[in-house]
Simulated scan of single mutants.
Amino acid sequence: MSKFDPLHVQCAVKQQYQPVFTGTNQPRLLYVSNIRPQTSMYPRMLHAHADAVELALMYSGSGKFFIHDRYVPVSAGDLLIYNSGVIHDEISSADNPIGMYCITLSGLHMPGLRPNALLADDRNCVISCGEHFESVRFLFELMFKQLSSDYPNASVFCHNMMEALLVQALTLAADAPQKPIGKSKRLELALDVKQYLDAHYTEPITLTDIGQHLHVSHYYLCHVFKDLMGYAPMKYLLRRRLGEAQTLLISTDTTIAKIAESVGFDTQSYFNFQFAKNVGMPPSQYRKNYLVRAFD
Rank of each mutant, 00 (worst) to 15 (best):
H218Q: 09
D266H: 10
G61Y: 00
I127L: 04
K183T: 03
V279H: 08
A276L: 00
Q16Y: 02
I250T: 15
T267G: 04
T202N: 05
K3Q: 12
E131I: 11
N160L: 06
T267N: 11
M229Q: 09
D175A: 09
G230C: 00
V32W: 08
F21K: 06
S251D: 09
F144T: 10
M162P: 07
V167K: 15
V167Q: 15
I210H: 02
E90I: 06
H49R: 03
G61A: 01
D95Q: 14
P111R: 14
P19W: 00
V9M: 10
I205P: 04
V136I: 15
L248T: 09
E141G: 13
C11A: 14
H132K: 11
K3E: 11
I259Q: 09
P6R: 05
E261F: 13
I67G: 08
F295V: 15
Y270A: 08
H213C: 04
L237S: 12
S135Y: 07
L57Q: 03
Q274P: 06
S284L: 10
Q18E: 08
G112H: 12
G61V: 03
R137T: 03
P283S: 01
H8S: 12
Y17W: 06
G264I: 07
A164S: 15
L139A: 10
V279G: 01
T206E: 09
A257I: 07
L207Y: 04
L142S: 15
R240Q: 13
P233S: 05
K277L: 15
Y59K: 02
K258N: 12
N34R: 12
D150L: 09
D121C: 07
Q16S: 03
Q15H: 11
